[in-house]
Design a binder for these strands. Structure first.
Lengths: 193, 193
DNA sequence: TCATCACTAGAACGAACGCTCTATCCAGGC
DNA sequence: GCCTGGATAGAGCGTTCGTTCTAGTGATGA
């Protein structure tokens, strides 16, 4: 019975950490809160993550990485046209944000900003996440016939604009920034056809 | 000698708080660190800010607001063409970020994200800041002849893209995201001429 | 049957947190 | 010369933090 319990508790801890840090950030999220909400004890937390809070945060960022990557992949599979897919992304992000009571923004950004320049392991994990997401956008664009350098640059701006718009939407508790971002990104992409 | 000393110490505390929270965020910045780096005592801090850390954070966000607003105004005054001014903004942001050792990102974002949905006063101050910056961009665009609704939407995306690109540049310790953002924003603006 | 070991459990530690409190300082008004 | 009150100063409050530590549980393989 090793595997089932191991995966169960460990996964529960990672998911809980990811969700809590998404909402409160790295510093405001305590290990006691994590262990309580994950229905695990402090002993279990340190058993699975001997590196303590830092290791846990790195794992949480990685979790957020794959979570958003799957979201992007799903949106890209649903829409053939890249510009239309990006508009759908922005719309779905706005929907999810509103439905969470404007609490669940990007699962990586808050933690990344807090630890930039202070906790290199977390910053590295966040950088990997952004790079991962950019690659997904880039591939979608190149498959649609865009030149490599154009797709590379567009991928940067698509992720950055979505990131900034989600932040803005969260702070102002409005879907407008994301709706506008989708529209402008589609226009930008189309301008390179 | 009331005025000189009052303004001096109070301002020093606000500036120090703003800089520390810009780099470390709200939760990781302690009042003891603030008072030490501002060469003030805890007594002085609570004398000027009876509301404690929260009131101090609100003031720090307001300080960051006017700081970035002045940066925008200066850039807009230097360049007549809005698109060129935005490119210059992105370049200067990248320069400042690199020169600070990739530590000084947006003076508002980190604090805003940490307290979104948890500390309404800080969230409100951050929202006011974004709104303020958007208005500056919007006015620059309307003065250049853009229609009101076009300028309104563009202002959103200009601020959001710069915000996202600065975050990305900080995490990846690279000027590329901001350089690309400037280029794409200029292209987007020009597409509405 | 028993030793093993992954896992659970939570008490306890020193340090740091935000904040309160009292004491002191000192320039300006009477 | 004294009083007032804004400003400075920092010890100390209770609490919470991340982490460590020892004890205990229960399924597994010999």
């Amino acid at each position: 019975m090793r595997t089932q319990h191991e995966i169960g508790t460990r996964e529960r801890i990672v998911r809980t950490t990811s969700r809590l840090m998404q909402r409160q950030g790295y510093e405001a999220t305590g290990l006691k809160q994590i262990s309580q909400e994950a229905r695990a004890t402090l002993g279990s937390v340190y058993h699975f993550f001997p590196g303590g809070k830092r290791e846990l945060a790195v794992e949480a960022v990685r979790h957020g990485d794959t979570e958003f990557a799957e979201f992007l992949r799903a949106a890209f599979d649903r829409e053939d046209d890249p510009a239309a897919a990006i508009v759908a992304c922005a719309r779905d992000l706005a929907k999810g944000l509103r439905e969470s009571g404007w609490l669940d923004g990007c699962p990586v950004t808050t933690t990344a900003l807090e630890s930039a320049g202070r906790v290199p392991e977390i910053q590295q994990a966040a950088e990997n996440a952004y790079e991962n997401w950019r690659t997904l956008v880039r591939d979608k664009l190149t498959r649609a016939g865009f030149a490599d350098d154009v797709a590379h640059d567009l991928a940067h701006s698509v992720i950055n604009m979505l990131e900034g718009a989600e932040l803005s939407a969260q702070v102002s508790q409005s879907e407008a920034p994301l709706e506008i971002a989708g529209r402008h990104l589609a226009r930008l992409v189309d301008s390179y056809r």
